[in-house]
Design a protein around this nucleic acid. Structure first.
Length: 586
RNA sequence: GCCCCCGUAGCUCAGCUGGAUAGAGCGCACCCCUCCUAAGGGUGAAGUCACACGUUCGAAUCGUGUCGGGGGCGCCA
């Protein structure tokens, strides 16, 4: 609709330009906006105000000239000039009525478009270390990333969803060692657990699996394990060197094969758990990309070589540094540690290089807000490698706080007593969790009210929207029970009967759906869609209360049924994009 | 010290990338079931858009500064 209005205005502008009032080479793309208020019609155009200066006339005078040459259209009922020089368009009821058959024909595809032109976009999200189960913070990134990906796909981008698996590096070694120490505990060895180790229950579970499978085959005495190690922090030592030494000891005592086994067991157990968790959350990936594969394929070395030959690396204090300050970072970064191990950053350089080499037109990373300091160095690396950093878009997701009975739920990773995504899903259900997570824009702190998410009342936006959908199903069931035929075309033929304010409000709302999906997608703002659905549900409930749908007047009844069927289709499409179910009954 | 995010109704937040009298939900105060789900609907009160300058026809929106809140700044990932 918007584009059709835009066409009319452009034609008018061309006609005006032909008379020399405005220069022909300065015809702008007129901006058509939704009227903020129904009294200003349906659409408004401010082009007269924008061009007043160039045309050297007052905005209102220019507006009048434009309106005088505006082509006639069936869509437009009347045009008015208002305020400082707005041109307001009032659409004819027909323009709206024709929307209903359009929605019903398009069905699931209504709202989708080809805006993206098939350009390839990668969305990488969650990518939590496989060192423990996903918690509620990851949940927000999961819901947000999944919806952004689905929205982009809906508007015509070719979307690739990816999870970057940090299956290499020191944190994984700490996990493997933690599992092994718990295993020793199960073997009745008395030992003090390192302060830097992973202490969640899941570590015990993996240890138990190891014990079931191998009995005492991996057992060493606590004495052997701890002999000669630097002290842990509580004993006045350094926790980092303590844990590093413990890792070394585990490798040495177990030998390569057995160490590898523990490592893989821990990794695979947790990764399987994460996969299942996300699957049950309705979050699907096209690819799980292994960090380790970057090292194994030589991609990390290749990236480092490229940086080295371009002269961006130097050695200092035994470590290898990347001169990221040359590209706007605030300090240089270590790429290879003194002990010869490459850092996470080194892998990340190779990874992002690889992303761009895979030919994506655009790469989106969804990160937790705590990683924001990381952006300049990744951009620096891309630039140093001669890649285009503008292709990379990092979306930072702020943390979510849970509230129960008005109290903030305390979460602590260190004690291992955090709330997992799985627990959240069990408590409030997948639908509510998915919806609540994306109700706020990502850079906004999210207060997640558990009680509200669980409540079955109109206060709960998810239920409110789902209920609108179910309510329409209920009406259709009623119609069937009464033996009323609603699938025929009489409804479409009689759409002119829809003249009530509530009906016009609904039609107007429906006409905005596509614009909302596009804006949500292009701005990466799923919350726009949640707000829209709530408003649409509200319009429906209001209408339901004010008007009986299944009236005796056949023509009117059929028209109303068609209208609510269209509403139901849009509710379903919107919920589907959010990963929320659209129930037939509640 | 430097960097990022936020500041709009009592509370939680929108405000469509600069438009017309700043909007929702909750909460509060009233009201509404002979009716397809009251798991609902309606009416009302409620605002110095943190503050100050600037940009222009026009600023909650853009810029600069100040104040306030949150988060981040490792040879961790």
């Amino acid at each position: 609709m918007k584009s059709q209005i835009q066409k009319l205005v452009t034609q008018a502008l061309e006609r005006i330009a032909a008379t020399g009032i405005i220069p022909e080479d300065q015809i702008p793309q007129p901006v058509i906006e939704r009227a903020r208020d129904a009294r200003f019609g349906d659409f408004a155009c401010n082009v007269a105000m924008v061009l007043a200066k160039v045309a050297r006339t007052r905005p209102r005078d220019l507006a009048e000239k434009l309106v005088a040459v505006l082509p006639k259209s069936e869509l437009v009922e009347k045009v008015e000039i208002a305020g400082p020089g707005f041109i307001n368009f009032y659409l004819s009821p027909t323009a709206y009525h024709s929307l209903i058959p359009h929605i019903l024909e398009q069905g699931h595809d209504f709202g989708r478009s080809l805006l993206g032109g098939g350009r390839r976009v990668q969305v990488e999200f969650v990518s939590a270390n496989p060192t423990g189960p996903l918690h509620v913070g990851h949940g927000r990134g999961a819901a947000y990333g999944a919806v952004v990906a689905d929205l982009l796909q809906a508007v015509g981008f070719d979307v690739h969803r990816e999870y970057y698996v940090n299956d290499a590096g020191r944190q994984m070694d700490i996990l493997a060692t933690s599992v092994w120490l718990r295993y020793l505990g199960l073997c009745d060895e008395e030992l003090s657990f390192p302060s830097n180790g992973y202490r969640g229950d899941y570590v015990w579970d993996i240890a138990a699996a190891l014990h079931r499978e191998h009995g005492d085959g991996y057992r060493f005495s606590a004495q052997q394990v701890f002999a000669g190690l630097p002290a842990d922090e509580p004993q006045g030592g350094d926790k980092e060197s303590h844990i590093d030494a413990l890792i070394g000891r585990a490798r040495q005592l177990l030998g390569d094969n057995r160490y590898r086994f523990v490592f893989e067991l821990a990794l695979n157990t947790i990764l399987d758990d994460i996969r299942e968790d996300l699957e049950l959350f309705g979050v699907h990936y096209d690819e799980w990309y292994s960090e380790r594969s970057l090292t194994e394929s030589g991609a990390v070395n290749r990236a480092l070589e490229r940086l080295r030959s371009a002269g961006h690396l130097y050695e200092k204090e035994g470590a290898l540094w990347f001169r990221s300050t040359s590209f706007g970072d605030e300090k240089d970064r270590v790429i290879e540690r003194e002990n010869g191990q490459t850092t996470y950053f080194a892998s990340d350089i190779a990874y992002h290089m690889d992303k761009l080499e895979r030919g994506f037109d655009r790469v989106i990373d969804v990160w937790g807000a705590d990683h924001h300091g990381y952006i300049p160095r990744v951009n620096a690396a891309l630039e140093a490698l001669g890649a285009d950093p503008s292709k990379l878009d990092v979306l930072l997701v702020q943390f979510a706080n849970l509230y129960r009975a008005g109290e903030k739920v305390q979460m602590s990773t260190r004690s291992g007593s955090f709330v997992t995504l799985r627990e959240l899903r069990k408590e409030v259900g997948r639908d509510a969790a998915r919806f609540f997570y994306v109700m706020r824009k990502c850079e906004q702190h999210l207060d997640f009210d558990l009680d509200l998410a669980k409540s079955q009342s109109s206060d709960n936006p998810v239920y409110y929207v789902q209920y609108a959908h179910a309510r329409i199903s209920s009406v259709l069931r009623q119609a069937a029970e009464k033996g009323l035929e609603v699938e025929s075309d009489t409804g479409v033929a009689n759409l002119g009967r829809l003249v009530e304010n509530h009906e016009l409000a609904l039609l107007n709302r429906l006409s905005r759906y596509q614009e909302v999906v596009e804006a949500s997608a292009l701005n990466e703002e799923p919350h726009q869609l949640t707000h829209y659905l709530r408003e649409l549900a509200n319009d429906l409930h209001t209408y339901y209360n004010a008007c009986q749908f299944l009236v005796d007047d056949r023509a009117l009844r059929d028209a109303r049924v068609k209208l609510v069927m269209a509403v139901q289709q849009v509710l379903r499409n919107g919920l589907n994009l959010l990963g929320v179910s659209a129930p037939e009954r509640m």
